[in-house]
Amino acid sequence: MKIILTHEVSGLGGPGDVVEVKDGYARNYLVPRGLAIRWTRGGEKDVEQIRRGRKLREIASVEQANVVKAELEGVKVRLKGRAGDAGRLFGAVTAADIASAIKAAGGPDVDKRRIEVATPIKTLGSHAVSVRLHPEVSAKVNLEVQSA
């Protein structure tokens, strides 16, 4: 099935890309979650609009990505969360929480979809989080989760 991606999907492509995937993957996962729309002749007009929006948000060059990487890695990010006596959080830290904590710490504005958390953060303490800035550049952010 041919689809048009509306958001970045790891291993598949970015917004505005037209890709061919298995019918079930598109019908059961990508389309219901809003990550893609079905390809139609009328949808081709939407592709250009999606690509224009992508260019505005995207970091254009590797040099610019390296500057943002240095900025991100120099920021101390602290996040407060409610936790029990054993240091386990009530819930988990989401990518949106991390993006807002980076902004509050004085870091650059980061899209929550670019933040990759290897394992769900459910405990207090220090955690490493990866931020994809460019296909060739990824920044490591140290996140300190503290009790509220």
Score class of each variant (00 low, 15 high):
H7C: 10
G87Y: 00
D17C: 05
I4N: 07
E48R: 13
I4C: 08
Y25M: 09
V141Q: 03
E136I: 02
I37Y: 06
S10V: 13
E71H: 10
A83I: 01
E8R: 15
K76V: 12
V67A: 14
E8S: 15
K55H: 13
L56D: 13
G13M: 06
G24P: 08
A95V: 12
R78F: 07
N142W: 10
L79F: 04
A95G: 07
A104Y: 02
V145H: 02
A26F: 13
V110G: 04
R113P: 07
R54F: 15
A118V: 12
A26N: 11
E58I: 08
A105C: 02
V137I: 12
I59T: 14
K2S: 11
L79W: 03
A101T: 03
N28T: 11
R88W: 04
V31Q: 08
E63I: 00
E44W: 08
T40K: 06
A60D: 05
K55G: 10
S10H: 11
G125D: 08
I102T: 00
R51K: 15
K45A: 14
K76D: 14
K80A: 13
E8Q: 14
E116V: 15
K122C: 06
P15F: 04
E136W: 02
A86L: 08
T6E: 09
S147V: 12
R41I: 09
E44C: 04
K69I: 00
E63Q: 07
G81F: 01
Y29R: 06
L35E: 04
S100P: 05
V21S: 05
E136T: 09
E116N: 15
Q146Y: 01
A83R: 00
D85F: 06
D109Q: 14
S138H: 10
G125W: 01
G34F: 03
A148L: 12
V68Y: 00
G16K: 08
A104S: 09
V77N: 04
G91Y: 13
I115W: 07
Y29V: 05
P32M: 05
K122V: 15
R57G: 09
V145E: 01
L133E: 01
D85V: 14
L30R: 04
G74Q: 07
L143Q: 01
G87E: 02
I4K: 06
L56R: 15
V129E: 04
R57M: 12
K80I: 04
L5C: 06
E71R: 13
A26H: 13
A92V: 12
G84T: 03
V67M: 10
E58P: 11
R82S: 09
G14H: 11
E116W: 11
P135I: 07
Y25Q: 12
G84F: 02
I121G: 02
I115D: 09
G53R: 10
E58R: 15
L89N: 00
N28H: 14
N28Y: 12
E48P: 06
V141Y: 05
G16M: 07
R88Q: 12
A128P: 10
Y25C: 09
A70I: 10
T123Y: 10
V18Y: 08
I115L: 12
D46F: 08
R52M: 11
D85A: 15
Q146C: 00
A86V: 05
I102W: 00
Y29C: 03
K69T: 00
V47R: 09
R33E: 06
S130T: 13
K122E: 11
L30D: 06
A65F: 00
Y25N: 12
E58G: 11
S138P: 08
